[in-house]
Amino acid sequence: MNLISKINIKVLYVIFTLFILSMLIFPVFSLANYAEPLIFGMPFIMVWVLFWIIVEFLGLIVFVKIDKDIED
C-alpha cells in the first residue's frame, strides 16, 4: 500500500512537470504568443509565463504536503 502511494505520487509529479513544460513551449505556447493586451503593464506573453510559474509554485506546495516520503 505504502509502495503504491509512493509510486503514484511520483507518476503524478512527472505528469505535473510535463504539463507545466507543455504550457511554456510550442504548440500550446502559441495561445499566449501575443504582445497585447498589456496586463499590469506587462505584455500578455510575459504574464502567461509568470502565471504558470505561480501555478507551478502552488502545485509544488501541494506535492510537498501530500508527499509521505519527505521525512528524513
Binding site: Y34, A35, L38, P43
Partner: peptide
C-alpha cells in the same frame, strides 16, 4: 512596453 510594441509589433512574440 507600449513604445516597444508600437515600434516593432513582433519583437515581443516568438516565431
Amino acid at each position: 512596453f507600449s513604445k516597444i510594441i508600437e515600434n516593432d509589433p513582433d519583437f515581443l512574440t516568438i516565431g
